[in-house]
């Protein structure tokens, strides 16, 4: 959003924006070829035991409403274009969390012919959460690390 404002107003607006972003990051989840393990752990993170919604995090249906893209799995040839498209549909500023070993390195599927590789070969990644699959605590930690990173910017 570009507005012609005086510098002081612009600074104040940026502050409010960062504050809002830190308090309610909306997530969109895309599985680009994962085994499901990470996906069910992401869902477990949203449900009562771990309840990441208490941090203001909400899982979103549409890329156009999302701040954070949470990706699982290696990138397959079929889903590469779709992953890039979802990323491009998200409004700026946008952040990406890669969840699981496959999203980081291709994991167990390294060398399979339909696997292109890891997420950051296709889109830039901000936070990596390792594990096969990562525990919900680790995913929460990843979200918190991302929020800290946004706060510092």
């Amino acid at each position: 959003m570009t507005l012609n404002l005086a510098q002081s107003w612009q600074d104040a607006l940026d502050k409010v924006r960062t504050w809002a972003r830190l308090n309610s990051p909306w997530l969109i989840h895309y599985n680009s070829g994962s085994c499901n393990g990470c996906d069910i752990e992401i869902l477990a993170t949203l449900t009562p035991r771990y309840d990441v919604e208490r941090l203001g995090v909400k899982l979103q249906g549409s890329p156009r409403h999302a701040d954070v893209l949470i990706c699982t799995g290696p990138v397959t040839r079929q889903s590469k274009d779709r992953l890039r498209r979802i990323y491009e549909q998200m409004p700026e500023p946008k952040f990406v969390i890669a969840v699981g070993s496959c999203a980081i390195s291709g994991g167990a599927f390294q060398g399979c012919y339909n696997v292109i590789g890891h997420i950051d070969e296709v889109i830039p990644v901000d936070v990596y959460v390792p594990g096969c699959p990562p525990r919900p605590e680790a995913i929460i930690d990843g979200v918190v690390k991302l929020l800290q990173k946004i706060g510092k910017q």
């Binding site: 397959t76 060398g111 399979c112 339909n114």
Partner: peptide, 14 residues
């Protein structure tokens, strides 16, 4: 279908 096709069956051979 096929978005999550990774080529596992072929991968087993290596």
């Amino acid at each position: 279908l096929g978005y999550a096709h990774r080529g596992i069956e072929k991968g087993t051979e290596s």
